[in-house]
């Protein structure tokens, strides 16, 4: 996607928004104009930045911890058939529980601070990462396994030198999904109970009928998610190119 296309889409979106405001004649506490939202964002820039930083930190820590746990689980499942037989059905079953429904419980257990939001983000991305990486680890060509056996390879060395690099494109796919889900987890955690973060700020602004600030927070959250998605997308492309032997030196 080229920068020119992005700017054009942005301008069209803003024009449409302004047109709706004019045509419906909606009061500013129901649907503020883009200009009003920009004004609110500028006037509240410090408070938005502080809360955006908290949400970004929750999302990033959630991503790092969730990815680490997911990768470790996938490796363990691929190394041990017994673990695969016992743990995989439990993992699939836990996906039947909506993670959002756990938010009040997590807030009760881990408080109103960052911990409950990070855990929420971890829970929401853990399964996609585990599932995608495990799929990649177990999908390698049988020939590699045969060659490794004929070479007298150790099980862990085969995992380290063949299976893990081979599964990196699958991990990249899981990471791209995680980049979309992690902010959802963190913001839902903030809605249920928090004293900081963009989700908290949105609720606060809504309660005080500052809909322009609510819109500004929402747009900042969307921007954060897009930046995260692009960054993770670049990372996923790099690891995929590395695994395919097509990376630039």
């Amino acid at each position: 996607m080229r920068l020119r296309d992005i700017l054009l889409a942005l301008i069209i979106g803003l024009c449409l928004w302004q047109a709706i405001v004019i045509l419906t004649d909606a009061p500013h506490f129901i649907l503020p104009s883009p200009w009003r939202v920009a004004n609110a964002a500028y006037n509240s820039r410090v408070i938005i930045a502080e809360n955006a930083w908290v949400t970004a930190l929750e999302v990033m820590l959630g991503l790092i911890i969730g990815t680490a746990l997911g990768v470790a689980t996938a490796i363990q499942l691929a190394l041990s058939k017994t673990a695969e037989r016992l743990i995989l059905p439990i993992l699939v079953f836990t996906q039947a529980v909506p993670v959002f429904a756990l938010a009040p419980l997590l807030t009760l257990w881990f408080g109103y601070g960052m911990a409950s939001k990070i855990i929420m983000a971890v829970l929401i991305i853990y399964f996609p990462i585990t599932s995608a990486f495990h799929d990649g680890l177990t999908r390698s060509d049988r020939g590699y396994g045969d060659l490794s056996v004929s070479m007298g390879a150790g099980r862990w060395n085969f995992m380290r030198h063949v299976q893990i690099p081979h599964a990196l494109p699958s991990l990249g796919t899981g990471l791209k999904l995680a980049a979309v889900y992690a902010p959802i987890g963190a913001v839902i955690g903030e809605w249920v109970g928090a004293s900081k973060g963009l989700g908290y700020l949105m609720l606060l602004a809504n309660g005080r009928a500052k809909i322009d600030l609510m819109f500004a927070s929402l747009i900042v959250l969307a921007c954060l998610t897009v930046i995260l998605h692009i960054t993770i997308g670049i990372l996923a492309t790099r690891i995929t190119r590395y695994a395919q032997g097509t990376s630039q030196k």
């Binding site: 020939g143 060659l147 060395n157 590395y242 695994a243």
Partner: peptide, 23 residues
């Protein structure tokens, strides 16, 4: 084997030595 089974992320030299790394 029929398929060369070279690991695409490794250089040619590293592919030749892969047996040592696997052991």
């Amino acid at each position: 084997a029929q398929s060369d089974l070279l690991l695409p992320w490794l250089s040619v030299l590293d592919n030749i030595c892969i047996g040592a790394r696997l052991r």
